[in-house]
């Protein structure tokens, strides 16, 4: 019996969302009185032993270059075999793009109940009940897992990473790696930007900015904050900003610590993509904008005046700190 945490890597680097999953899995193992182990697939340049500081005692590695691209079928087969070898009763994933590709397949293969999109540690006082977000962040469900083996995928940005002391033993794991049926022909990564779903702070713009040529003030603010940039659907549809920045019901769903909405009215479809954010700031010149109802802080004012002042004020605060 152990908790096995899937460590997701991209180009050899362990993702931030996986550090959250590691902390979550280690805390869960403590709660269950068992050990936490990690598993990583593919070639990794990061120091895996150092991940012990997130609470895992051992990390299994299947160091096979053919696993550098995520193939759901191959990954599911490798991970379920690994879970059996490690004697894992709970598997933890991040509910990121990789988790969405793989966790459900692994769960089906192991006939394990799955809670996808968990946001808190399970309540194990009476059974095994996991809290997850439902209705696009508008509510939570407590879901009982009834099977002996359990799979949990954790919403990114919903569990705080805690690093202490510790080193993990890294062990090569011998499992069958079959040839993927899906042939990857091109990978196109957006470089030099903070990935939206992993960002602590997101600065987002809407139609209120009146045109792509006015995005400079928003980019300056984002740069000052180390934030990712996003936009509303009309902005994406009008090609003012790239489509992958579109946040909302049909776009990307984000859950940063801070979401700053500039010139976005806050249609319910947009809110569905952002309402898991911890703190929401709305800057809009229309005091009736529905977004103010979902906001923690707001400024009713002209974005073209307020945003540069905000950037300057943050600069000043940082200089003083």
């Amino acid at each position: 019996m152990s908790v096995l945490i899937f460590i997701d890597q991209s180009e050899g680097v362990v993702k931030k969302s996986s550090l959250e999953a590691l902390t979550y899995g280690a805390d869960l193992a403590k709660q269950l009185g068992t050990s936490a182990e990690g598993i990583v697939l593919g070639t990794v340049s990061d120091d895996l032993a150092a991940l012990g500081k997130y609470g895992v005692s051992k990390i299994h590695q299947v160091n096979n270059a053919s696993l550098n691209n995520v193939d759901a079928q191959v990954y599911a087969s490798v991970l379920s075999e690994a879970a059996t070898i490690a004697g894992a009763t709970v598997l933890v994933f991040s509910h990121n793009q990789t988790g969405k590709a793989v966790a459900a397949r692994v769960a089906a293969k192991l006939k394990a109940g799955l809670v996808a999109g968990a946001c808190a540690l399970p309540d194990t006082s009476n059974g095994f009940s996991v809290k997850k977000t439902v209705f696009s962040g508008k509510a939570f469900a407590h879901v009982n897992i009834l099977s002996a083996t359990k799979v949990i995928s954790l919403n990114p940005n919903s569990y705080k990473t805690v690093a202490t002391e510790g080193t993990a033993v890294v062990e090569a794991l011998a499992v069958t790696v079959s040839e993927p049926k899906v042939k990857v022909t091109a990978v196109n990564k957006i470089t030099g930007e903070v990935p939206l779903t992993e960002a602590d702070i997101v600065v987002s713009g809407g139609r209120g900015l009146k045109g792509p040529e006015h995005w400079g003030i928003l980019l300056d603010l984002a740069k000052e904050l180390g934030a990712a940039t996003a936009c509303s659907r009309p902005v994406g549809d009008a090609h003012w900003r790239p489509h992958h920045e579109h946040v909302g019901q049909t776009g990307v769903q984000v859950a940063p610590n801070l979401y700053i909405a500039i010139g976005i009215s806050g249609a319910i479809q947009h809110l569905a993509g952002v309402n898991r954010s911890k703190v929401i700031v709305v800057i809009n010149k229309d005091p009736e904008a529905p977004f103010f109802k979902a906001a923690d802080y707001g400024i009713v004012g002209d974005a073209f005046e307020v945003v540069p002042q905000l950037t300057a004020a943050i600069q000043k605060m940082k200089a003083g700190a």
């Binding site: 509510a139 407590h142 009834l146 700031v281 707001g298 400024i299 307020v306 004020a313």
Partner: peptide
């Protein structure tokens, strides 16, 4: 393999704190 035990609504937002546009330092 799973069953829903219960639902929960998030706590209501305390309401927006408005800051004057000429006082961004306060924000």
């Amino acid at each position: 393999l799973t069953s829903i035990h219960s639902f929960e609504l998030p706590p209501a937002k305390a309401g927006v704190k408005l800051v004057a546009p000429d006082n961004v330092a306060e924000l």
